[in-house]
């Protein structure tokens, strides 16, 4: 499901029009982004936790060229799904 379909479904379920739903999604994502930039994590009950993790520089070997590559340090966004979400998608 792409973003447009999701907006439509979200609009229907929340009782908002598409424009308001789009704005609401942008507001929520921007708030999550701000929280993650501040190296904080957002915990949503029965859904999961968004967090930002700092990763140190590492040396890996490129399999294609067989050369070692120094990967710089980075901050990555990770999502830990809640147990309720994992259970809900199980068949």
């Amino acid at each position: 499901m792409d973003s447009k379909d999701f907006v439509n479904i979200f609009a229907k379920k929340s009782g908002l029009d598409v424009k308001s739903a789009t704005e609401a999604i942008e507001a929520i994502t921007s708030t999550i982004t701000d929280t993650l930039v501040a190296m904080d994590s957002v915990a949503i009950p029965s859904f999961g936790t968004f967090e930002s993790v700092k990763k140190d520089e590492t040396i890996t070997r490129d399999i294609a060229t067989n050369k070692r590559v120094l990967l710089p340090p980075s901050i990555e966004v990770k999502f830990k799904p809640a147990t309720a979400l994992s259970n809900s998608i199980k068949e």
Binding site: T33, V37, S52, D62, K67, R68, E76, F79, P81, N87
Partner: peptide, 27 residues
């Protein structure tokens, strides 16, 4: 029940902004 989250490139870039000027280099 395994779910993977791939952040949007814009979100990833904004969060990784402090180390954005680093690039992987060959040794």
């Amino acid at each position: 029940g395994l779910i993977i989250f791939m952040p949007d490139p814009t979100l990833a870039d904004v969060v990784n902004e402090p180390f954005a000027f680093f690039e992987p280099t060959e040794i």
